[in-house]
Amino acid sequence: MSKSILIVDDDREIANLIDIYLRNEGFDTAQAHDGLEALAMLESQAFHLIVLDIMMPKMDGMEVCRRIREKGSIPILMASAKAEDMDKILGLMTGADDYVVKPFNPLELVVRVKTLLRRAYQYTQQTSPSGNEEGLLKLHELTINKSTHSAEVEGRPIHLTSTEFGILHLLASNPGRVFSAEDIFQQVWKEKYFESNNTVMVHISKLREKLEQEMGRKLITTVWGVGYKIEG
């Protein structure tokens, strides 16, 4: 079954361009042209991913993203003319999985979409010293299920984005091993890492906040100047 994607952009020419490229790749698409329309469509239809503009009338993309994250973990790719690092960080802290800057190459956007969908929905069975054939990982009171892309603490679910889950599963699968930001980016995003890229740091920060809220203690440790790890 083909994946369905909601394109949210008040610029109809850009929305139509994205639509054409995604349909050419076999995706089902729908469009919304402001934030309120997007939220209404999400209430009535199921989508696998959202391409979300930031600067829109009635409700901007940041607020749309915040409201979506209150209810679920659908992958969100933000697309915006704002290129400053703080705008990217704010978008990622709000809950976006990835961020592209306008004007973008439509083919690059298609690649980002496919990467996010693969990360969120293409489950693979993996084992580890603390796991089993069903893809379960257990670390103290934390249980991570690769087959359902879910994590819970003593039965309480932790609502993670697909990117946050990918980072958590990577670290938890290798307890005690230190991963640099470059290692994490290349293994989770499957893309080349650029030195100025602070995407990993932002996602680690959000992931830590969610884990510590449920566990009451720190799980991910920073090894200064090297990277991040989870102790077994």
Rank of each mutant, 00 (worst) to 15 (best):
residue 73 S to A: 15
residue 80 S to F: 04
residue 100 V to T: 01
residue 175 P to C: 07
residue 85 D to V: 12
residue 35 G to P: 06
residue 210 K to P: 05
residue 222 T to L: 04
residue 187 Q to F: 00
residue 91 G to M: 05
residue 101 V to G: 02
residue 227 G to D: 10
residue 190 K to W: 06
residue 129 P to M: 11
residue 65 C to R: 04
residue 24 N to S: 11
residue 127 T to D: 12
residue 158 I to S: 03
residue 133 E to I: 13
residue 91 G to V: 04
residue 162 S to E: 07
residue 160 L to I: 02
residue 32 A to D: 08
residue 152 E to D: 14
residue 40 A to L: 02
residue 218 K to D: 14
residue 150 S to D: 03
residue 209 E to L: 14
residue 174 N to K: 10
residue 48 H to W: 00
residue 19 D to R: 15
residue 26 G to Q: 10
residue 22 L to F: 08
residue 227 G to Y: 10
residue 136 L to E: 09
residue 53 D to A: 07
residue 140 H to L: 12
residue 78 M to P: 01
residue 87 D to I: 01
residue 4 S to P: 02
residue 16 N to L: 13
residue 154 E to A: 15
residue 197 N to K: 09
residue 83 A to I: 07
residue 29 T to N: 05
residue 224 W to M: 11
residue 187 Q to W: 01
residue 169 H to W: 08
residue 90 L to N: 07
residue 52 L to W: 00
residue 167 I to G: 00
residue 9 D to G: 09
residue 195 E to S: 11
residue 203 H to I: 06
residue 178 V to Q: 01
residue 60 D to A: 01
residue 79 A to E: 03
residue 117 L to I: 09
residue 101 V to Q: 01
residue 108 E to G: 02
residue 120 A to Y: 09
residue 74 I to T: 10
residue 23 R to I: 08
residue 181 A to R: 12
residue 72 G to E: 10
residue 64 V to I: 10
residue 187 Q to E: 12
residue 207 L to K: 09
residue 201 M to E: 12
residue 117 L to N: 05
residue 210 K to G: 06
residue 228 Y to A: 01
residue 159 H to T: 03
residue 95 G to R: 07
residue 152 E to Q: 15
residue 189 W to G: 00
residue 94 T to F: 08
residue 119 R to S: 07
residue 188 V to G: 02
residue 101 V to I: 15
residue 14 I to V: 15
residue 230 I to A: 08
residue 12 R to V: 14
residue 229 K to P: 01
residue 53 D to W: 06
residue 158 I to Q: 08
residue 209 E to V: 01
residue 132 N to V: 09
residue 147 S to V: 03
residue 112 R to L: 00
residue 116 L to V: 09
residue 136 L to V: 14
residue 46 A to R: 11
residue 109 L to K: 06
residue 226 V to Q: 15
residue 120 A to R: 11
residue 157 P to L: 06
residue 132 N to R: 12
residue 119 R to G: 08
residue 45 Q to D: 05
residue 130 S to M: 09
residue 176 G to T: 11
residue 210 K to H: 14
residue 165 F to W: 08
residue 75 P to W: 09
residue 117 L to A: 02
residue 61 G to E: 12
residue 194 F to M: 05
residue 217 R to M: 05
residue 91 G to F: 06
residue 39 L to P: 03
residue 226 V to W: 15
residue 63 E to F: 02
residue 229 K to G: 03
residue 155 G to K: 05
residue 71 K to W: 01
residue 32 A to F: 05
residue 214 E to W: 09
residue 153 V to N: 03
residue 209 E to A: 13
residue 14 I to K: 07
residue 51 V to M: 04
residue 161 T to Q: 05
residue 62 M to G: 00
residue 160 L to V: 01
residue 118 R to Q: 14
residue 91 G to K: 04
residue 194 F to R: 07
residue 127 T to G: 13
residue 76 I to Y: 05
residue 226 V to M: 14
residue 57 P to M: 06
residue 55 M to S: 09
residue 181 A to C: 11
residue 3 K to S: 15
residue 133 E to V: 13
residue 24 N to I: 07
residue 55 M to W: 02
residue 38 A to S: 04
residue 111 V to Q: 07
residue 97 D to N: 07
residue 110 V to N: 11
residue 67 R to N: 13
